[in-house]
């Protein structure tokens, strides 16, 4: 049999039963439909609900740690803030051996207000927004990584990748749908956590009698706040892409989740080691000095920190936005391209 050159063929359209209603078949519609499939699976999956619940609870708990002492302090009688009565303690140092005077009570009240003020900077707006981001960076990120690792690696672990890839979508469409779904999870997840965090802080502030003021709101502030939230979304999304990459290359949920978490821990460990090393001279010293500037976590954090310098008056990051964006773009390409290549080229066996 002679080999014919490859040619595209257009066989007559297939006529299906009238009960089969086909959707739009163009490239984008197919990707959007697959993203819909991912979101549908997410909604129906008990693990997603558990992760969401853990995420919300951990956000509430992180504020409760700040709000609890504030509420306690706010509702403690002023007398209780004075040193204990000397008759009730064994030592006579730092105790009160007389009826508290008005002046002492005023001092105690002033001390209470001072301490409440410290809590207020954490619980009231806009300070609470920074608290939300810190919780996302430290705690919620783990949940996002688990979610991303599961929705990608799970397809291989269970074998459902076979089901999806024999139904018509191309492998690139399948891959884009995963990336799109993870982006939606990151946007919606971060959005929910911001709402929960801010609501928690508002409720706890009210309980702690800390007044809220929206005087800081202005057009530029809102714009920077929007960029701040986008940077937080990018932070979680980039780690999710790392989980997607490792989950795809390792064909397992474990590879995606454990790999991303190990990266997260190892990167900060390396940075700590570099910071604690004695000063090197020459090339090694120069490399060690610039190396942290190319770490993924540092650049993702820099984007957040640069916005927070405007929003909360913090010190800006040593890495400018453009540098940070380029480094993050490099990492995203580093994660996405091999994963895409692997999914396009690999044989799907068992």
């Amino acid at each position: 049999m002679t080999a014919q050159p490859p040619a595209r063929t257009n066989p007559p359209a297939l006529i299906r039963r009238d009960t089969v209603v086909m959707g739009r078949a163009d490239y984008l519609s197919t990707v959007l439909r697959l993203i819909g499939v991912e979101l549908y699976k997410f909604r129906r999956r008990p693990m997603s609900k558990v992760l969401l619940l853990i995420g919300i609870l951990s956000m509430i708990i992180s504020f409760a740690f700040k709000g609890g002492p504030a509420i306690f302090l706010a509702h403690t009688p002023t007398r209780n803030l004075l040193p204990p009565d000397c008759s009730s303690v064994e030592t006579t140092i730092d105790c009160l051996n007389h009826e508290p005077t008005r002046e002492e009570l005023n001092l105690a009240e002033a001390e209470r207000q001072h301490r409440l003020q410290e809590y207020a900077s954490l619980l009231s707006l806009p300070g609470s927004i920074e608290g939300v981001t810190q919780t996302i960076q430290l705690v919620e990120l783990i949940l996002f990584i688990i979610l991303a690792g599961t929705i990608v690696g799970g397809e291989y672990s269970v074998g459902t990748v076979r089901l999806m890839l024999t139904r018509g979508p191309t492998r690139t469409q399948f891959f884009l749908a995963k990336v799109g779904a993870i982006l939606i999870y990151a946007i919606v997840g971060v959005g929910i956590l911001f709402v929960v965090g801010i609501l928690s802080s508002v409720v706890l502030s009210m309980l702690a009698n800390i007044p809220q003021s929206l005087a800081f709101l202005s057009g530029p502030w809102l714009f920077n706040c929007f960029l701040y939230i986008l940077a937080t979304i990018l932070y979680t999304f980039t780690y999710c892409m790392l989980a997607l990459c490792l989950g795809t290359l390792g064909r397992a949920t474990t590879a995606g989740v454990a790999g991303a978490l190990v990266w997260w821990v190892v990167e900060s460990a390396i940075q700590s080691i570099i910071l604690n090393l004695p000063n090197f001279h020459g090339i090694i010293g120069a490399v060690l000095e610039v190396l942290p500037g190319y770490f993924m976590a540092n650049n993702l954090a820099a984007l957040i920190q640069n916005r927070s310098s405007y929003l909360f008056g913090n010190q800006p990051s040593p890495f400018p936005d453009l540098h940070a964006l380029l480094v993050v773009a490099f990492y995203l390409a580093l994660f996405l391209l091999p994963a895409w290549w692997a999914i396009r080229r690999r044989d799907i066996t068992n």
Partner: peptide, 15 residues
Amino acid sequence: RVTAAASGMMSGKSN
């Protein structure tokens, strides 16, 4: 439902 949508069929209750 998931398989139908992946097969190019309309999502939702159409099918």
